[in-house]
């Protein structure tokens, strides 16, 4: 009904593009999209935990890939699958632009075991560092934030990687297997190191 009315005017005026702008959807700005995430992920994506990860300073390709895999259900989630289905790839890219520009946020004062964190640092340098530089806080490496991210999120991530509800690429699968064979408690040590939040 409404469309018909509008079309009639369009024909009269011949201002097709103009009216089109008013009736079809424009894409919200990166800021507008990113602000809606803050309710759960913290202002400008800086989460204070304990369970929801930060988005601030995240690599854009990693964020886009994560959202795409939530959307198609290939990455396990509770709620992100339902949220991701509300956006287009272009919108994920805009969110990625916004969060990549924010400073990496590290949660201070999380619980960790000192000795275990020390061991975790060694493990990180041996098995993870190549792809997760600076303790996993370098957005250039197109991977998620590790150091200083929410502790429970880190625990969930290791749980998912171990029970295979979240997949890894070949290289990571191999390294993880090797690491866990040598040290079955490696995950906890890494989590302690990352929770400590300092290199």
């Amino acid at each position: 009904m409404k469309r018909k009315v509008i079309l009639k005017y369009v024909v009269i005026a011949g201002a097709l593009i103009l009216i089109g702008q008013q009736t079809t959807l424009a894409t919200p700005t990166a800021k507008m999209l990113a602000y809606t995430c803050a309710g759960c992920h913290g202002t400008n994506g800086a989460s204070n935990g304990p369970a929801i990860p930060s988005l601030a300073g995240l690599s854009k390709p990693y964020l886009v890939e994560s959202m795409e895999s939530y959307k198609d259900g290939s990455r396990v989630s509770t709620i992100m699958d339902r949220i991701a289905k509300g956006y287009s790839k272009k919108e994920f890219e805009l969110m990625g632009d916004f969060f990549a520009k924010q400073k990496v946020h590290k949660i201070s004062k999380q619980k960790f075991n000192k000795a275990s964190a020390k061991a975790g640092k060694k493990l990180h340098n041996k098995y993870c560092k190549k792809c997760h530089e600076s303790g996993g806080t370098n957005p250039e490496d197109d991977a998620g934030q590790l150091l200083g991210n929410a502790r429970l999120y880190l625990e969930y991530t290791f749980e998912d990687l171990t029970d295979k509800s979240r997949s890894m690429d070949k290289k990571m699968t191999k390294k993880m297997k090797k690491m866990l064979k040598k040290d079955p408690k490696a995950s906890v040590k890494l989590i302690d190191y990352y929770s400590k939040g300092e290199k």
């Binding site: 803050a38 759960c40 202002t43 935990g49 369970a51 929801i52």
Partner: peptide, 24 residues
């Protein structure tokens, strides 16, 4: 059970982050 437990924790983090988003 794994995911329901997480939803409790996500709810608690939501509380921390949204209150900081408004009042922090």
């Amino acid at each position: 059970p794994k995911l329901r437990e997480r939803e409790v924790e996500y709810g608690y983090t939501w509380f921390n982050n949204i209150t900081n988003d408004a009042f922090g």
